[in-house]
């Protein structure tokens, strides 16, 4: 269960978010525009303004501000970004329903391109763009849309949706007739949208001044590869073990082909950064062909999942599946480099022994740390006497420490994380002791 502290911090975060989202309505109440609308008219307008407000603030949630992430973890900010779209879609669709009321049927003829006057058509196109964005993001995997294509279209489509909606509100809206309200609202809304420039223009500009190079490429079991990256002409960055960075390979950080990956190396080895990446999509499969000397750019570090958030724990428990072991590896390597003497446990699910990541490095770490590694294999080899199948509550019961206050880290495929998080909750592990981050949200 979440602790009171978690809930308070979450409440403050959400309270601030709601206040920012409501600001346009507060502005319209403080400096009222012309009256004359009935209840349905006013409600339709309010929903339109709220939809634009939420759409514009989506750019804040994804602007990679580190200070936005703490109470929850960066992944939950992205999850919220994704789920709040439900509200945006509902508000945007209800907006014409309330405004047109019984003449909605007649207004439907405006859906034919070219049929509506431009101030209305811009709203209709904004809604189409919004629906396309939402469907592409919610169903990306089912539609087998490649991540790169999705990411390339997501930003421009989002900007188009919100700019069209803003234009629609300025041209068709009744409530923005007073110039001061109009300009205040426009500046406020465009301010959020401008944050897109931070990620797509200013960040790449800053990254270009701090290039990296791939100094080593190590093939790993299970179609994975480790890229060793070193800063060129600058001092790189310090990170906490368990964090991640956005990697761009190639001569320009503007290419837009950046991907988030967990750091695998020890925080004590900075500025050298190792990323261990499993080949799952086009980009990651291409990594197997990367050669040393390849220019690269790293935007980071990000993420709140780290042993350093729980320095006083009696020990750390890592529950990992597949490449989810990568951030755990960084934390274990860091602990070993620090000469940590506490007892730690890694429960690690893999498909088969020959495809298990870090088998030998983990063995080596066991000699430097008080570390027990429990491999759970989906398809164990003949004569395997260890754990097999998928992670279960019974397995956790068998291996988890029953004394002391530990910090728990869960990283892996979604079904595994669901089982682990539910099982840990049933075992009475408070949510504040549990850290997990997942990034396969789209």
């Amino acid at each position: 269960m979440p602790t009171l502290r978690d809930l308070t911090r979450a409440g403050l975060w959400l309270g601030l978010y709601v206040l920012l989202a409501l600001w346009p309505l507060l502005l319209l109440l403080a400096a009222p525009g012309p009256r004359g609308g009935g209840f349905a008219d006013e409600l339709g307008s309010a929903l339109g303004f709220l939809a634009i407000s939420l759409m514009a603030m989506q750019f804040l949630l994804t602007a990679r501000f580190e200070w936005l992430a703490p109470p929850f973890g960066t992944d939950l900010v992205y999850a919220f970004h994704r789920h709040i779209t439900i509200a945006v879609v509902v508000f945007a669709l209800l907006h014409p329903v309330f405004l047109f009321g019984s003449s909605l049927g007649m207004a439907l003829s405006w859906l034919i391109p070219g049929a509506a006057p431009w101030e209305i058509a811009s709203g209709i196109w904004a809604t189409w763009a919004l629906l396309a964005l939402a469907v592409a993001s919610w169903l990306r995997k089912r539609l087998t849309l490649p991540y790169e294509a999705w990411r390339w279209t997501h930003g421009p489509l989002a900007a188009a949706a919100v700019l069209l909606a803003i234009w629609h509100a300025l041209m068709a809206g009744r409530l923005l007739s007073r110039p001061v309200v109009r300009w205040l609202w426009l500046a406020w809304t465009l301010g959020w949208v401008g944050l897109l420039l931070r990620v797509r223009v200013f960040k790449p500009l800053a990254l270009r001044r701090r290039p990296w190079t791939v100094s080593e490429v190590r093939p790993e079991p299970g179609d994975a590869v480790t890229l060793v990256l070193e800063p060129v002409g600058h001092d790189g960055f310090r990170f906490r073990s368990g964090q991640f960075a956005w990697l761009t390979l190639g001569a320009s950080p503007f290419a837009g082909r950046e991907h988030p990956f967990s750091i695998a190396s020890s925080a004590m080895a900075a500025p050298r950064v190792e990323l261990t990446i499993k080949a799952v999509g086009d980009f990651t499969r291409g990594l197997l062909a990367v050669k040393p000397g390849q220019p690269a750019f790293l935007d980071g570090p990000f993420g709140t999942m780290s042993i350093d958030a729980f320095p006083d724990a009696d020990g750390y428990v890592f529950i990992a599946g597949g490449s989810g072991v990568v951030p755990c590896m960084s934390m274990l390597r860091t602990l070993a480099d620090r000469g940590d003497r506490r007892p730690h446990l890694l429960l690690f699910g893999s498909s088969e022994l020959s495809r298990t990541l870090f088998r030998e490095p983990l063995q080596a770490l066991s000699t430097r740390l008080d570390l027990r590694v429990v491999h759970v294999l989906e398809r164990p080899p003949e004569g395997w006497r260890g754990e097999q199948g998928y992670l279960t509550q019974a397995m956790l019961d068998r291996w988890l420490p029953h004394r002391g206050r530990h910090a728990y880290f869960v990283c892996g495929p979604n079904p595994m994380m669901d089982v682990a998080e539910a099982a840990l909750a049933r075992l009475g592990v408070p949510m504040s002791d549990l850290h997990s981050e997942r990034f396969d949200l789209v």
Partner: peptide, 30 residues
């Protein structure tokens, strides 16, 4: 479970905003 919390937070926020839109409309309707 954390993911469910994010969904609940988003839906709760949406519901709250809908309520404020109703209040806004009630306050302004002629």
């Amino acid at each position: 479970m954390r993911q469910r919390l994010a969904l609940q937070a988003a839906l709760g926020t949406g519901a709250f905003l809908l309520l404020t839109a109703l209040l806004f409309a009630a306050a302004r309707a002629s």
